[in-house]
């Protein structure tokens, strides 16, 4: 095997390990399966029954937002497991093995894609049960899921970078919560951003989470002619901009996380 094949094989071994860990840890599994189910049901029935939108049901408007919220919050599992592993000295063992050094982070992030796939499929099934539908073509629908998973993968590298610079699980959890809440709620995930007051509207419209939610709505066909797209540039071109965001995040954070990992373990 050449170096690249070895790196892929090692990455898969680590991914398998992390996937097993998620399956065995009730707290992590709850976050991956139970929480999304609760989110969909809660938002669809509680808010869905109170809020009405012109030309479409709130539940249908909401589901792409819940997809994105779940992806952002479960990316925290990447950071949490990394900080835990850092503390336990397991990386020392890995580093004394003849494995590819990059495998730790690629394995971790790939396992998180598998986890995100589980979450998204769960949410889609529950969504279908409560009346959500993909109203576009199957190709666009598939592209929508692909886009969500790609963003999830890219975002895992962001949380990995944050985790490796903070190093302890407790600090990471606090920081991640403080950062992810405004990211999700200062967006169009749950509310129509055009109705937000001035500066908040600008923030919400340029928030990458809004772009992703808008793109998901368009690809799943969860839109209504009665609700025009805001004028902000990223929302006007939501689908290509969403893919671009994923690529940019990967280009910036893969090398950054890799460097921080080397630094964190070689002290």
């Amino acid at each position: 095997m050449n170096a690249l094949q070895l790196a892929v094989a090692d990455g898969m071994t680590i991914a398998r390990r992390n996937a097993l860990k998620i399956r065995r840890a009730p707290d992590l599994l709850g976050g991956v399966v139970m929480l999304p189910i609760v989110f969909v049901l809660l938002f669809a029935y509680v808010f869905g029954s109170m809020i009405s939108l012109p030309g479409m049901s709130y539940g249908e408007y909401l589901l792409p937002g819940i997809f994105v919220m779940t992806i952002v919050s479960s990316a925290q599992i990447t950071g949490y497991t990394l900080t835990q592993d850092l503390q336990k000295g397991i990386f020392d063992r890995f580093r004394t093995l003849p494995m590819s050094p990059s495998a730790v982070l690629t394995g971790q992030t790939v396992a998180d894609v598998i986890m995100n796939l589980t979450s998204v499929v769960t949410m889609a099934l529950v969504g279908l049960a409560v009346g959500w539908r993909v109203r576009s073509s199957p190709v666009e629908g598939a592209l929508g899921f692909l886009m969500l998973l790609l963003f999830a993968y890219a975002f895992s590298w962001v949380t990995a970078t944050v985790a490796l610079s903070l190093r302890t699980p407790e600090v990471f959890n606090n920081v991640a919560t403080i950062l992810s809440f405004p990211l999700v709620f200062l967006s169009n995930a749950f509310v129509d951003s055009t109705r937000l007051p001035g500066p908040l509207r600008v923030v919400a419209e340029w928030n990458p989470v809004s772009t992703l939610v808008q793109a998901a709505r368009e690809l799943f066909g969860n839109t209504s002619p009665a609700m025009p797209v805001p004028d902000a540039w990223p929302l006007r071109h939501a689908v290509p901009v969403s893919f671009a965001w994923s690529v940019v995040l990967l280009v910036v954070f893969v090398p950054l996380a890799t460097r921080l990992y080397q630094k964190a373990v070689s002290r």
Binding site: M1, L6, A9, D10, T13, R17, G89, R93, L97
Partner: peptide, 21 residues
Amino acid sequence: AAVDDHLTGAENLEMVGRLYH
């Protein structure tokens, strides 16, 4: 002990074996 709590004993050693290629 740098072992993985959530993995079984066998899984822990298998993982190390694979990483030794």
